[in-house]
Amino acid sequence: MSIDQATVRRVAQLARITLAEGEVAHLQGEINAILSFVAELDGVDVTGVEPMTSVLPMRLKRRADAVTDGGIAPLIVANATASEDHLFAVPKVIE
């Protein structure tokens, strides 16, 4: 399977990565090289094989549904480019 330039642009949009126009053809080539590399899997019969969804045969542990921390708003926003009153600040979303 190979992808066209429109698909490259659509995937970049989904991934929220702005592409420069000159990058599209290059990325198309690289992505198609990787897709052709993984096409080797087409020949494998996986009928009746369960997907591996857990590395180890174990149940995910659960804990009590209780508050375990909090009151650290200054720490949470400490690395933000823009914050006000312990809130993250972003460009206006609603017109």
Partner: peptide, 12 residues
């Protein structure tokens, strides 16, 4: 076609 298949290969 891709992710689910790859997870089955992982089982193998």
């Amino acid at each position: 076609a891709y992710y689910l298949k790859a997870q089955k290969i992982r089982t193998l």
